[in-house]
Protein backbone atom coordinates (compact mmCIF):
# COMPACT_ATOMS: atom_id res chain seq x y z
CA UNK A 1 0.00 0.00 0.00
CA UNK A 2 1.61 3.25 -1.10
CA UNK A 3 -0.26 5.28 1.52
CA UNK A 4 1.32 3.21 4.27
CA UNK A 5 4.72 3.56 2.58
CA UNK A 6 4.23 7.32 2.50
CA UNK A 7 3.31 7.33 6.18
CA UNK A 8 6.34 5.23 7.04
CA UNK A 9 8.55 7.66 5.12
CA UNK A 10 7.23 10.50 7.28
CA UNK A 11 7.90 8.50 10.45
CA UNK A 12 11.43 7.80 9.24
CA UNK A 13 12.11 11.43 8.23
CA UNK A 14 10.12 13.59 10.66
CA UNK A 15 12.64 16.47 10.52
CA UNK A 16 12.49 16.80 6.73
CA UNK A 17 8.73 16.41 6.65
CA UNK A 18 7.92 18.92 9.37
CA UNK A 19 10.32 21.56 8.14
CA UNK A 20 8.59 21.36 4.74
CA UNK A 21 5.15 21.29 6.39
CA UNK A 22 5.96 24.29 8.59
CA UNK A 23 7.40 26.14 5.61
CA UNK A 24 4.17 25.45 3.71
CA UNK A 25 1.93 26.68 6.49
CA UNK A 26 4.16 29.69 7.17
CA UNK A 27 4.09 30.66 3.50
CA UNK A 28 0.30 30.45 3.49
CA UNK A 29 -0.17 32.40 6.73
CA UNK A 30 2.23 35.20 5.72
CA UNK A 31 0.68 35.54 2.26
CA UNK A 32 -2.84 35.51 3.64
CA UNK A 33 -1.91 38.05 6.32
CA UNK A 34 -0.36 40.44 3.82
CA UNK A 35 -3.31 39.95 1.44
CA UNK A 36 -5.74 40.79 4.25
CA UNK A 37 -3.85 43.95 5.14
CA UNK A 38 -4.03 45.04 1.49
CA UNK A 39 -7.50 43.85 0.52
CA UNK A 40 -9.61 44.83 3.54
CA UNK A 41 -8.79 48.54 3.76
CA UNK A 42 -8.84 48.78 -0.04
CA UNK A 43 -12.22 47.07 -0.13
CA UNK A 44 -13.63 49.40 2.55
CA UNK A 45 -12.53 52.49 0.65
CA UNK A 46 -13.55 51.24 -2.76
CA UNK A 47 -17.00 50.06 -1.62
CA UNK A 48 -18.08 53.65 -0.97
CA UNK A 49 -18.07 54.65 -4.61
CA UNK A 50 -20.17 52.59 -7.03
CA UNK A 51 -17.74 53.25 -9.88
CA UNK A 52 -14.62 52.28 -7.91
CA UNK A 53 -16.41 49.17 -6.62
CA UNK A 54 -17.31 48.22 -10.18
CA UNK A 55 -13.70 48.57 -11.33
CA UNK A 56 -12.38 46.66 -8.30
CA UNK A 57 -14.85 43.81 -8.73
CA UNK A 58 -13.95 43.41 -12.40
CA UNK A 59 -10.19 43.68 -11.95
CA UNK A 60 -10.33 41.22 -9.07
CA UNK A 61 -12.51 38.91 -11.13
CA UNK A 62 -10.09 38.83 -14.07
CA UNK A 63 -7.09 38.38 -11.74
CA UNK A 64 -8.82 35.32 -10.33
CA UNK A 65 -8.95 33.68 -13.74
CA UNK A 66 -5.13 33.63 -14.05
CA UNK A 67 -3.89 30.14 -13.16
CA UNK A 68 -1.80 29.88 -9.99
CA UNK A 69 1.12 28.37 -11.88
CA UNK A 70 1.20 31.33 -14.28
CA UNK A 71 1.33 33.81 -11.39
CA UNK A 72 4.09 31.88 -9.62
CA UNK A 73 6.16 31.48 -12.78
CA UNK A 74 5.71 35.14 -13.64
CA UNK A 75 7.18 36.12 -10.25
CA UNK A 76 10.50 34.38 -10.92
CA UNK A 77 11.91 36.59 -13.72
CA UNK A 78 11.34 39.68 -11.54
CA UNK A 79 12.11 38.45 -8.05
CA UNK A 80 14.31 35.41 -8.56
CA UNK A 81 13.82 32.24 -6.56
CA UNK A 82 13.06 31.49 -2.92
CA UNK A 83 10.48 32.46 -0.34
CA UNK A 84 10.00 36.12 -1.36
CA UNK A 85 8.79 35.58 -4.95
CA UNK A 86 6.58 32.75 -3.72
CA UNK A 87 4.94 34.92 -1.08
CA UNK A 88 4.46 37.79 -3.55
CA UNK A 89 2.81 35.44 -6.03
CA UNK A 90 0.57 33.94 -3.34
CA UNK A 91 -0.48 37.42 -2.22
CA UNK A 92 -1.53 38.19 -5.79
CA UNK A 93 -3.49 34.97 -5.68
CA UNK A 94 -5.11 35.73 -2.33
CA UNK A 95 -6.11 39.37 -2.80
CA UNK A 96 -8.93 39.05 -5.37
CA UNK A 97 -11.34 36.87 -3.36
CA UNK A 98 -10.71 38.95 -0.24
CA UNK A 99 -11.25 42.23 -2.07
CA UNK A 100 -14.33 40.93 -3.82
CA UNK A 101 -15.96 39.70 -0.64
CA UNK A 102 -15.12 42.82 1.34
CA UNK A 103 -16.67 45.05 -1.32
CA UNK A 104 -19.73 42.84 -1.68
CA UNK A 105 -20.10 42.55 2.10
CA UNK A 106 -20.17 46.33 2.50
CA UNK A 107 -22.36 47.01 -0.51
CA UNK A 108 -24.96 44.46 0.54
CA UNK A 109 -25.69 46.26 3.80
CA UNK A 110 -29.31 47.43 3.83
CA UNK A 111 -29.17 51.17 2.93
CA UNK A 112 -31.85 51.92 5.53
CA UNK A 113 -29.45 50.72 8.25
CA UNK A 114 -26.87 53.28 7.13
CA UNK A 115 -29.53 55.98 6.75
CA UNK A 116 -30.68 55.34 10.32
CA UNK A 117 -27.10 55.37 11.64
CA UNK A 118 -26.42 58.62 9.84
CA UNK A 119 -29.73 60.17 10.89
CA UNK A 120 -29.02 59.40 14.55
CA UNK A 121 -25.77 61.32 14.40
CA UNK A 122 -23.21 58.53 14.27
CA UNK A 123 -19.85 59.76 13.00
CA UNK A 124 -18.37 58.33 9.81
CA UNK A 125 -15.80 56.40 11.87
CA UNK A 126 -18.43 54.96 14.24
CA UNK A 127 -20.49 53.79 11.27
CA UNK A 128 -17.42 52.11 9.79
CA UNK A 129 -16.39 50.24 12.94
CA UNK A 130 -19.73 49.59 14.61
CA UNK A 131 -21.94 48.99 11.58
CA UNK A 132 -20.18 48.38 8.29
CA UNK A 133 -17.33 46.13 9.36
CA UNK A 134 -19.33 43.89 11.74
CA UNK A 135 -22.05 43.46 9.11
CA UNK A 136 -19.50 42.63 6.41
CA UNK A 137 -17.68 40.07 8.58
CA UNK A 138 -19.54 36.97 7.35
CA UNK A 139 -18.83 37.91 3.75
CA UNK A 140 -15.19 38.77 4.53
CA UNK A 141 -14.79 35.41 6.31
CA UNK A 142 -16.09 33.63 3.22
CA UNK A 143 -13.42 35.52 1.27
CA UNK A 144 -10.74 34.44 3.75
CA UNK A 145 -11.84 30.85 3.32
CA UNK A 146 -11.68 31.00 -0.48
CA UNK A 147 -8.31 32.76 -0.35
CA UNK A 148 -6.88 30.34 2.19
CA UNK A 149 -7.77 27.35 0.06
CA UNK A 150 -6.37 29.02 -3.07
CA UNK A 151 -3.16 29.82 -1.23
CA UNK A 152 -2.76 26.32 0.25
CA UNK A 153 -3.08 24.85 -3.24
CA UNK A 154 -0.98 27.58 -4.81
CA UNK A 155 1.81 27.08 -2.28
CA UNK A 156 2.22 23.52 -3.58
CA UNK A 157 3.49 25.10 -6.80
CA UNK A 158 5.96 27.37 -4.97
CA UNK A 159 8.36 24.48 -5.09
CA UNK A 160 8.89 25.20 -8.82
CA UNK A 161 10.44 28.58 -8.01
CA UNK A 162 12.36 27.39 -4.98
CA UNK A 163 9.84 28.45 -2.38
CA UNK A 164 9.97 25.10 -0.59
CA UNK A 165 7.02 23.61 1.26
CA UNK A 166 5.15 20.35 0.73
CA UNK A 167 5.36 20.82 -3.04
CA UNK A 168 9.00 19.73 -2.81
CA UNK A 169 7.87 16.15 -2.09
CA UNK A 170 5.53 16.19 -5.07
CA UNK A 171 8.28 17.45 -7.38
CA UNK A 172 10.76 14.91 -6.04
CA UNK A 173 8.21 12.13 -6.32
CA UNK A 174 7.56 12.95 -9.96
CA UNK A 175 11.28 13.37 -10.75
CA UNK A 176 12.32 10.01 -9.34
CA UNK A 177 9.00 8.31 -10.12
CA UNK A 178 8.48 7.56 -6.43
CA UNK A 179 4.70 7.55 -5.82
CA UNK A 180 4.80 7.25 -2.00
CA UNK A 181 7.08 10.34 -1.90
CA UNK A 182 4.59 12.20 -4.07
CA UNK A 183 1.81 11.37 -1.62
CA UNK A 184 3.91 12.65 1.30
CA UNK A 185 3.36 16.07 -0.30
CA UNK A 186 -0.08 15.62 -1.87
CA UNK A 187 -2.06 14.11 1.01
CA UNK A 188 -1.12 16.68 3.70
CA UNK A 189 -1.90 19.50 1.23
CA UNK A 190 -5.33 18.01 0.56
CA UNK A 191 -5.93 17.54 4.29
CA UNK A 192 -4.86 21.13 5.04
CA UNK A 193 -7.30 22.42 2.43
CA UNK A 194 -10.19 20.33 3.73
CA UNK A 195 -9.46 21.26 7.34
CA UNK A 196 -9.39 24.96 6.42
CA UNK A 197 -12.67 24.67 4.57
CA UNK A 198 -14.36 22.94 7.51
CA UNK A 199 -12.88 25.28 10.11
CA UNK A 200 -13.83 28.48 8.32
CA UNK A 201 -17.21 27.07 7.41
CA UNK A 202 -17.82 26.52 11.10
CA UNK A 203 -16.59 30.00 12.10
CA UNK A 204 -18.74 31.60 9.41
CA UNK A 205 -21.84 29.79 10.58
CA UNK A 206 -21.29 30.61 14.23
CA UNK A 207 -20.93 34.31 13.35
CA UNK A 208 -23.89 34.39 10.98
CA UNK A 209 -26.51 32.65 13.09
CA UNK A 210 -26.66 35.63 15.41
CA UNK A 211 -28.69 37.72 12.96
Amino acid sequence: MILVEAFNWILANPGTFFSAFNRHVLMCVISLGIALVIAMPLGLVVARSPRAAFVAINVAGSLRSIPSLAILSAAMPFLGIGLLPSVVALVVLAVPPLLLNTVVGIREIDPSVLDAANGMGMARRDIRWQIEIPLAVPSILAGVRTSAIQVIGGAALASFIGGGGLGDFINAGIAIMNMPRLLVGAVPIALLAILTEVLFGWIERSVTTRR
Binding site: D110, S112, V113, L114, D115, A116, A117, G119
Partner: peptide, 8 residues
Protein backbone atom coordinates in the same frame (compact mmCIF):
# COMPACT_ATOMS: atom_id res chain seq x y z
CA UNK B 1 -37.85 55.67 8.79
CA UNK B 2 -40.14 53.30 6.93
CA UNK B 3 -37.69 50.38 6.76
CA UNK B 4 -36.84 51.04 10.43
CA UNK B 5 -33.12 50.44 9.85
CA UNK B 6 -32.47 48.54 13.08
CA UNK B 7 -28.89 47.30 13.31
CA UNK B 8 -29.28 43.57 12.57
Amino acid sequence: IQQVGLFP
